[in-house]
Nucleic acid binder design. Structure first.
Length: 821
RNA sequence: GCGGAAGUGGCGGAAUUGGUAGACGCGCUGGACUUAGGAUCCAGUGGAGCAAUCCGUGGGGGUUCGAGUCCCCCCUUUCGCACCA
């Protein structure tokens, strides 16, 4: 027990006891159902969603609380503005985090997860969130993942799920396949082990089919620009052309062609060689027998080379196949090389080498002494200007050494060459996307089993909807091994089942699905939690979705947000949803650092919300989190600074205790009050919480100025203004002051009315500049005209000193500023 | 390398459209109350100067009556992506 509270605690002697008030209101909210939303009866529904947390064993992180508080403030504000706000919260409890942690501590995830969830729930309730806990969910609940499996079947039925033997990323430490997204810089995102390649049979979703729509829709949704940019880059549209280079098969001698993809078709006259990826299926056909050994050795080497070296090394390696192709533009013979700087996964797995105008090709050509030709000139260059590096800038480029293209600009040349070659069937304009299909198979235990059965007679058979969920069995040995299959594959008693179609003994799919599939549809589930006959109720979905406001971390800017958009589109196309974009508005919150450094366990600077709430109260802590920096940028958490927000709440508390209803409110104070009502509302609406708090503090300073007793009318609206930030204290003060009867909540009382007439200033401080420098401020009527303003300014002694004779120019900004030149 | 964001007092940060730079808070200084205060309250607080005034938003140019804000060049930090043709 910490007994320093009486002697050392700087909060000792402050005027209100947050512990008692917060416990009281958390109890009353529960008893009165204050935070319960009437989903059926709502007339002005507003869905305020935050990304659900992964319930870690360490408990709630202050970063979670920062994020959730921001959403809560927005939700509470919308409620005060008259909406029926639904603010649900659940848990993203499946996945590799939980499983790895369970392995580490030697406990079973089925035992750990409920415990972690209970701890999260306790912490979240202490934070005073307006969450309707009747509609919580956990992705690990069979009632939930039943429908995750159902979604898999929807994709399968629409031909959007398929199996493919594919080279996948394999983490030798986690002993599992990783999605491309989980490979960061060639190493496993989680354990930093270099990733290897393995070939396994996997389930994929055809998200790449949706690339054009996923991209196009971004233009019409209200999301943070940064997030949209990240998605655009990830989808990676590039418009270019596919060009065919005639060649000869080295073995049979028959004619064939190599197709390359390029975004710079204009530079084809500068293509002095071709390169194909080592994995390219045509490599063998082009390799002359004299070169066969060398080429094979090179292919073997790159296959073995781990992905890190291959992706990070900029050194150019490669071998000549001994064969030549014909450049369709120059009709010259150019050599065909094999090199690992060309990737099989992108484009056609083959490129034309244009060393004059591509940095990588320049390096390669320099290394292997291949000819370098200039075909584009900048402003002060001509066809003969030597190239010391690749000239890649094409903005002001003019074509040279390019036959029919000479003199054209780069863009015109791109179109023209495709037209010319297309006549011979050697070119077509194409659009490529970087986005590749989504591999959802995981050779792991802690996830929803993929609802598929493999039957010797019937093949791949889906588990009928009536048999869902395929329940994840409790198994003791859930540790993955390097067999390339899930731990479930060790449990014959589970995977041996009769085929749903023919009844013969068959085998279940033993892989589970990706956690991102769990989180790709959870927002659809919340309003329908408790319904076991449908994934989501038609009418409730119509009423509540799409999500009105979604808030979350930008680390999910690409994957989660893209996957949930995709799943929503698929369900829309299948007729299950009316809309195709899940989140009408999305804003990314920032992240919190501490004392200028990243919070981490090893540094021991992690903020445990429990301790801070204990010491300062949830209200002061919430307010501080929102005050420490711009919500969308995050900020720096400093222990010392919390006292400021606590003092602010104490002063409000004290003012309410001291206020009087005698006499009239002060007009200046009331003017400031109405300005504050407007500013706080505007600021909350644009998530500028730090300035909203600052505005309230400023008002409190005005209110308390001088030795006067504040008037009731000056104080009461502050209770509502502060309520989204400090909900417990607001309720307490609301009750104390008799707001809306005995059982009313401040959150049902509406946002204080803003009166523009009361907020308007009659007089303003006009800034007077002379030659652009501020020389004086004069107090003048708000709507003063230019001539009167000049007179007033010249009456000022300082201004008079600087202005001699007639001004050459007067700049007058009404209501703000006067500049005499 | 490419793409995004950002550089403002001792510190966290304000300045919504080119119009008083430093709101608000922390810290610090002085004072009041006090047996005491790391509580509370009051006052002050960008730098230089007795002052008038001058200098100040990473650095250097520019546009403008006026630039933290717009344009050009450079430096630094940070976060994504990374041989994507």
């Amino acid at each position: 027990m910490d007994n320093s509270a009486t002697s050392n605690d700087p909060t000792a002697g402050l005027t209100y006891d947050p512990g008692a008030i917060e416990r009281k209101w958390q109890r009353l909210w529960q008893e009165r159902g204050t935070n319960s939303t009437n989903l059926q009866g709502a007339t002005r529904p507003f869905y305020a969603l935050m990304m659900f947390p992964y319930p870690s064993a360490e408990g709630l992180h202050v970063g979670n609380l920062f994020a959730f508080t921001g959403n809560d403030i927005y939700g509470r504000f919308q409620r005060l503005a008259g909406h029926n706000v639904f603010e649900p919260l659940g848990y993203d409890a499946f996945g590799i985090h939980s499983e790895n942690y369970a392995l580490k501590v030697g406990k079973h995830p089925m035992e750990l997860i409920p415990r972690n969830i209970a701890n999260f729930r306790r912490q979240l309730e202490r934070a005073g969130l307006m969450v309707d806990w009747r509609y919580t969910l956990a992705t690990t609940d069979p009632d939930y993942y039943k429908w995750t499996q159902w979604i898999f079947l929807q994709l399968l039925n629409q031909g959007l799920a398929y199996r493919k033997q594919a080279a996948v990323n394999w983490c030798p430490n986690c002993k599992t396949v990783l999605a491309n997204e989980q490979v960061v810089g060639g190493v496993c995102e989680r354990c930093k082990t270099p990733v290897e390649q393995r070939s396994l049979e996997q389930w994929f979703f055809r998200i790449s089919d949706y690339a054009p729509r996923l991209l196009a829709n971004l233009d019409r949704i209200d999301w943070s620009e940064t997030t949209k940019t990240a998605q655009r880059n990830w989808i990676g549209k590039s418009e270019g052309a596919e060009l065919a280079f005639p060649a000869t098969d080295a073995g049979s001698g028959s004619a064939c062609e190599i197709r390359v993809f390029t975004t710079r078709a204009d530079t084809i006259f500068g293509a002095t060689y071709l390169v194909v990826a080592p994995e390219h299926p045509l490599v063998e056909s082009f390799t002359q027998s004299a070169e066969r050994k060398k080429v094979e050795a090179y292919r073997e080497r790159t296959k073995k080379q781990d992905i890190v070296t291959r992706k990070t090394s900029t050194e150019k390696t490669g071998v000549f196949t001994g064969s030549y192709a014909i450049n369709p533009a120059t009709e010259k013979r150019i050599p065909i090389w094999v090199a690992d700087y060309v990737l099989m996964e992108y484009g056609t797995g083959a490129i034309m080498g244009v060393p004059g105008h591509d940095a990588r090709d320049f390096e390669f050509a320099t290394e292997f002494r291949l000819p370098i030709v200039r075909v584009v000139c900048g402003e002060r260059e001509d066809a003969a200007t030597p190239l010391t590096a690749a000239h890649t800038d094409c903005d002001l480029g003019t074509m040279v050494n390019s036959g029919p293209l000479d003199g054209l600009g780069v863009d015109a040349a791109k179109r023209r060459i495709v037209e010319i070659l297309a006549e011979r069937g050697a070119a077509k304009a194409v659009v490529r996307y970087r986005l590749h299909d989504w591999c959802i198979s995981r050779q792991r235990y802690w996830g929803p089993p993929i609802p598929i059965v493999y039957c010797d007679s019937c093949g791949v058979v889906q588990v009928p909807e009536k048999d869902l969920p395929v329940v994840l069995p409790f198994v003791e040995d859930f540790k993955p091994d390097d067999s390339g299959v899930s731990p479930l594959a060790r449990h014959e008693e589970w995977y041996r089942v009769p085929c749903p179609e023919c009844g013969q003994m068959a085998r279940r799919e033993t892989d589970v699905s990706d956690t991102f599939l769990d989180s790709a549809w959870y927002f659809l589930r919340y309003p329908s939690v408790g319904r076991n006959d449908v994934p989501f109720d038609k009418n409730l979905t119509l009423k509540w979705l799409p999500v009105d406001s979604y808030i979350g971390g930008n680390e999910h800017a690409v994957l989660h947000l893209l996957y949930s958009r995709f799943i929503t589109m698929v369900l829309h196309d299948a007729g299950h949803l009316e809309f195709e974009e899940p989140y009408a508005r999305f804003r990314a919150h920032g992240h919190i650092i501490r004392d200028g450094a990243k919070m981490s366990k090893t540094q021991g600077n992690i903020v445990n919300p429990d301790e801070y709430i204990e010491r300062w109260g949830a209200d002061a802590f919430r307010t501080y989190l929102m005050f420490l920096g711009p919500y969308e940028q995050g900020g720096d958490f400093r222990d010392q600074s919390i006292s400021g927000t606590r003092r602010f709440l104490d002063r409000l508390f004290a003012s309410v205790q001291a206020m009087s209803s005698e006499g009239d409110p002060n007009a200046d104070v009331m003017r400031k009050l109405h300005q504050t009502i407007r500013k706080v509302g505007d600021d909350i609406a644009r998530l500028s919480y730090n300035t909203a708090v600052a505005a309230m503090m400023e008002y409190m300073n005005v209110l308390r100025k001088g030795e006067r007793t504040p008037h009731r009318d000056e104080v009461l609206p502050m209770i509502s203004l502060v309520s989204p930030f400090a909900p417990h204290l607001a309720e307490e003060l609301w009750q104390q002051t008799g707001g809306a009867g005995k059982n009313g909540s401040v959150f049902d009382a509406g946002w204080p009315a803003f009166d523009p007439a009361l907020a308007a200033e009659d007089f303003i401080e006009l800034v007077v500049q002379v030659n652009g420098r501020v020389r004086a401020k004069v107090r003048v009527p708000r709507d003063i005209g230019q001539d009167a303003a000049v007179d007033a300014a010249r009456a000022d002694p300082t201004v008079a000193r600087y202005v001699s004779g007639a001004p050459t120019k007067i700049v007058f900004v009404p209501g703000r500023l006067l500049n005499i030149v």
